[in-house]
Amino acid sequence: MTGWNRNPNRPDRGPVVASVTLHVAVIVGALVLHHLTFAPAEFVAYEINIVSMADPDLPEEIALPDPDELVVEIPDPDPPAPEPEPEPAPPQPRPDPVPPPQPAPTREPPPPDPPRVDPPRQPPPAQRPPPSDPPPERPETPANVDINVRMAGLQRDYPAYYGRILAAMSACWRSPPGVEGVSSTLRFEIERDGTIRARSIEPFRRSGNGVFDLRAVQAVECAGENQRIPPLPDDIPGDRLPVQFTFTTTGFRE
């Protein structure tokens, strides 16, 4: 008879061979599958908004207490106004012969601060650099190009690298004059060497303004040139990084 009892003195090699074969098959299969499935890398998608540094200077939206629709936006004192005067003279009636429709209204000595103004924000770090500033280095992070980066999301896998992308886009972005309150979204891929192939650039959501959309494409092309975007970090998987990028221009205090 044949069988595993044929020579009870020798260990039977059949199961071992089968096991090894099976394992090798599984590993090879896994590797093959691996390469097939990993073509584009997967990332967490999240939004990064960058806004101008000048923000703290901007007039603020003030919510009035009444339900009326009126919206008043109020700035902070730009240079903190040097007004100590505790005894502000009530504004003089204008002596001019060109009268406002009525004599200047009588006012109590002003408690000059209506209570609904938000506490002043800090003035921004000087927007105009002193002339003696040494020429700055090529921006390494978005901070050097006067932008704030806000990131929302569960993961911040490569924030420094995304900052470089944003800095490059910011340098290349030329908003067309007079176009406000629009937004244009593109998709493209950054190659491992940091370049962007023109044919990978696809409009995803157009702004409705042809010039604005064109400038967006130009900005992406420009960002992919002159090593403006560094090569992908080594630990980013995949051959290229898919990016969805939105250019937004807000309107007059929108």
Partner: peptide, 30 residues
Amino acid sequence: LSLAAPAKAQVVEDRFPGVSLELISEGTRA
């Protein structure tokens, strides 16, 4: 597909296999 069917853009966008970035300029960019 998303280009062909913008109505479903939101759904597709959620699955976008990359990074989404936005540059917002407020006219104050110096």
